[in-house]
Amino acid sequence: MNTTDSPRRPYHHGNLREALLDAAEIAIGSGPAYEISLRELARTVGVSHTSAQRHFANRRDLLDALAQRGFDRLGAALSEPPDAFALSFDARLVRLARSHVSFAIRHPTLHRWMSEAMSLADASASLLAARDRAFNPAAAIFADGQAQGAVIPGDPEHLGLASFAAVQGLIALSPGGRFGGVVLDTLVGDVIERIILGLRPRS
């Protein structure tokens, strides 16, 4: 990370943790996450390394916090507005998938790091909990769909996982938010439509 090219941010009391996370989110866009230096990030935001260590013991601590903040943001993006509960299961699932795609397109480097952090064998319990909270809306949608007779029986969290995996795969295969020149917002509707057909109860 080249600190001479990064704008020096003023440090305001009580905001250093967020400032360091903001700087880390910018840094992962220009190189591997594990090349980030906590010392360099501290210099970028205009504080000492010691000050930064009051919030993050080391680089891994900071990167875990960055991924957790990403899942908190994703969870907010996936939360349903009050009027969504009047929609059909199909409409709610498509809305959820499009919200996920929209988040990934708006925050590509953060979304990529969230996936990388979850792939680590020693992912922390707090990070796993943040991921589960982010996708709670999906489980709720599937549970409601089962109650309405629109979805096959089964663990709603597992059914939600299948949809999440399909959307996540589509995002991974579509750099820049397009696949074969087609925008993801269009493609995700087709993908979810096919998932919904597979979820229909059999007579």
Rank of each mutant, 00 (worst) to 15 (best):
S51E: 13
F56L: 07
R39M: 08
I152G: 08
V94L: 09
N2W: 07
F56R: 01
A134I: 05
G169N: 04
Q168A: 15
D72I: 13
T4S: 14
S37V: 04
A77Q: 10
D185E: 15
P201K: 09
E25R: 07
A104N: 07
H12E: 15
A130R: 00
A129M: 10
A91F: 04
P81G: 06
D5V: 15
V45R: 00
L16G: 07
P153S: 03
T50K: 15
I36P: 02
S124F: 06
F103W: 04
G160I: 01
E40W: 08
V182W: 05
Q53E: 13
S126A: 15
S51F: 01
H107N: 15
D132C: 07
N136R: 12
S126L: 11
S174M: 02
I196Q: 05
A166I: 13
H100W: 11
I171D: 05
I28N: 00
F164D: 08
T109W: 15
F89K: 02
A129P: 08
G75Y: 02
G75Q: 07
A172F: 12
D61Y: 04
E25K: 04
L120K: 14
T44L: 04
A139G: 09
S115M: 12
A23Q: 05
P81N: 06
P201R: 04
A91P: 01
F85Q: 06
S163V: 12
A19L: 12
E157F: 07
L78N: 01
F71Q: 04
A172P: 03
R39V: 14
D90F: 03
R39P: 01
I28S: 03
R17M: 01
I36S: 04
A117G: 03
V191R: 00
F85L: 10
A138S: 12
G177Y: 03
L16N: 00
M118E: 13
L120Y: 12
G70N: 02
S102V: 07
Q146H: 05
R17Y: 01
F135K: 07
G149V: 06
L127K: 01
D190N: 10
R17K: 12
R8M: 11
E193T: 11
S48D: 05
F142D: 04
A23L: 09
D22S: 01
D144T: 10
S102C: 11
R98L: 05
L110D: 04
R178S: 09
G176E: 01
D132T: 11
P32A: 04
D144A: 15
A150G: 08
P32H: 10
G198I: 04
A134G: 09
A86E: 10
V182E: 07
S126T: 15
G169Y: 08
Q168T: 13
R69T: 06
Q53F: 06
E35R: 14
R39K: 10
H49L: 13
R178A: 14
I152Q: 12
I192F: 00
L199H: 11
L96R: 00
